[in-house]
């Protein structure tokens, strides 16, 4: 029997007039980084909330760490760690106090807790900030502290809801280096949601979710190979001659697209020199397009992932908060 961290069967969540999650099935293997990729409002957070026992599904069932999310929520909570989309630290406490609060909440023994706090702060490189108030932290530092907190009680599965939302590219890389080190060191499975395509590349497997449904689920490479391998886009002085050449001599399947020729290639690096040497007409321009998850996404859903960073309402809320502090 395979050791599964998460098993989800036909999970559905309906709000009053919206079907947020419309019957999804998937499973996450132990030690795997599993990504949920989709635009805002696709149902990612709703799914994570159901799996973390913060939201009751309308129907369907799910097992997390081997426990039924509806029948054994307390056992599920013990084996999971969560990093929510929005910050959930008490910024009037110090980093140490936030972690201590967490440890006590999870019933950790004092000696173990102290050791664990130091270990986790070291992991996220915040040891020197241990006794500083969280309100003095930058967004990236807060995120790292939340990561340390999420791992404090040695969970088997770590949930991360948009772990790098709103962080600068450098901090995002930083967070990802911690996450990949987790994968190397232990048996923690990671379940994360993101709408950053480049981050989804770091996952072992990705489920592409749109309008509450899983449109595709596979490794990033396999998903990309579904679309096409690599695409060469050519513009020549005589496209018709070029097209015939590509078809007859190279055995390819070129498609005329306006004044350009598109042609799918496997292992473009190998083929391109030959192509350029032998093509009988002048090449005016040439672009090589590798398949990205974006292409996969467009193919599956017919639209681009919206890269919006929260609505005006969220921003208003942030402004309100900073005024209140």
């Amino acid at each position: 029997m395979k050791d599964l961290s998460i098993t989800v069967k036909n999970l559905v969540k309906n709000y009053k007039d919206v079907q947020a999650v419309q019957g999804i099935d998937f499973s996450v293997n132990q030690g795997e980084i599993f990504g949920f990729l989709g635009p805002n409002g696709a149902g990612k957070t709703t799914t994570i909330k159901m799996l973390c026992t913060l939201l009751r599904p309308t129907s369907g069932e799910a097992f997390v760490g081997g426990f039924n999310i509806l029948k054994d929520p307390m056992k599920v909570r013990k084996v999971i760690g969560i990093i929510f989309q929005e910050p959930t630290l008490d910024d009037r406490l110090t980093a140490y106090e936030n972690l201590k609060f967490h440890g006590f909440l999870y019933g950790l023994k004092k000696e173990f807790l102290e050791k664990q706090i130091d270990k986790m702060l070291e992991l996220v490189e915040l040891s020197d900030k241990k006794n500083l108030y969280v309100k003095t932290f930058s967004g990236g530092m807060k995120r790292r502290l939340e990561l340390a907190r999420g791992l404090l009680h040695t969970p088997k599965i770590l949930f991360l809801d948009e772990p790098t939302l709103g962080l600068d590219p450098q901090t995002r890389l930083h967070i990802w280096s911690y996450l990949s080190s987790l994968k190397k060191n232990g048996n923690v499975s990671l379940f994360l949601t993101t709408h950053y395509l480049d981050e989804a590349e770091n996952c072992d497997r990705i489920a592409i979710i749109d309008h509450g449904r899983i449109a595709a689920l596979d490794t990033p490479n396999k998903l990309k190979s579904q679309v096409h391998g690599e695409m060469v886009i050519l513009k020549t002085e005589n496209n018709e001659i070029a097209q015939t050449f590509l078809k007859k001599e190279m055995g390819l399947n070129p498609i005329l697209d306006g004044n350009k020729i598109r042609v799918e290639l496997q292992e473009a690096e190998k083929w391109l020199p030959k192509l350029l040497r032998e093509i009988p007409v002048e090449v005016e321009s040439l672009t090589l397009h590798r398949a990205t998850l974006e292409d996969v996404f467009i193919k599956l859903t017919g639209k681009e992932i919206r890269e919006e960073e929260g609505s005006w309402k969220d921003r208003a809320r942030v402004i309100m908060r900073s005024r209140l502090k």
Binding site: C52, T53, L54, M74, K75, R77, K78, I82, F84, T88, L89, H102, L105, Y106, G107, R149
Partner: peptide, 8 residues
């Protein structure tokens, strides 16, 4: 949320 999701 931090409190609500704790195993208590």
């Amino acid at each position: 949320k931090e409190i609500m999701v704790a195993p208590i």
